[in-house]
Design a protein around this nucleic acid. Structure first.
Lengths: 113, 113
DNA sequence: TGATATGGTCGATGTTTATCGAACACTGTA
DNA sequence: TACAGTGTTCGATAAACATCGACCATATCA
């Protein structure tokens, strides 16, 4: 993680388009991340601790998309990168959307195996 | 329109997955259709009357996706195919989602030009 | 019957994107 | 310093999918 990369993890977009939000939420792996994140206190889950059927390269990609969409926030804690669901912020911008995602039952493919 | 095709336009799916709903709503052209449809009484708009930046082949494809997702219903009226937004049904299945789409401002690209 | 209008189907094309392995960067520890 | 653990970046690949032109089917009207 370079200094440049680290600074980007803290910055979250001021205004996210509906298109970006729907794209972010349109992937089942990313929805699994959101559900798993919603079930834990803030800043307790590192990226590598999620139960996902993809390699760490793909995993890193999905976290970047969620970050760009304003759905999560990240903070470096030693070698790991801890996550927080930006629930109130996202709810204010897109009321009801996150509730739909979190209400979705987890599949065999993505998480809760 | 064959008899087979016509019967399919009336049938709408009993249970739509969140994935299908998000896919359907993830395209800007389809969101433009939904917004335009929401601004008119039921069964007053034929497929060809929508202001869309695509050819009729693509248009027909988008209407089929919306139908499969349970977002619209279609009925043949002579040579045209009239549409109805299945708003109460969709709202009951995915509360808040359609509201987000309809609240989105129309772009230059898709509709309300 | 022919002409016109509406809409669907088919095959091809281009773009987007999810995915992976490999290499790299950083942190913490022995 | 060396090593192990965590996460990102890069290049390549494959699968979806939005798009189009061309053709087909149906309905209405002259």
């Amino acid at each position: 993680m370079s200094a440049r990369t680290r600074s980007l993890t803290h910055a979250h977009p001021t205004e996210v388009s509906l298109q970006d939000a729907l794209d972010a939420v349109g992937d089942p792996v990313r929805r699994a991340i959101l559900r798993e994140l919603a079930g834990a206190p803030d800043w307790t889950r590192a990226c590598g601790t999620f139960d996902l059927p993809v390699t760490k390269a793909t995993r890193s990609h999905h976290f970047a998309v969620l970050r760009a969409a304003g759905l999560i926030e990240q903070r470096d804690e030693g070698p790991r990168r801890l996550n927080r669901l930006r629930r109130p912020e996202f709810d204010r911008r897109f009321p009801g959307l996150l509730d739909l995602i979190l209400a979705e039952p987890a599949t065999d493919q993505c998480g809760s195996a």
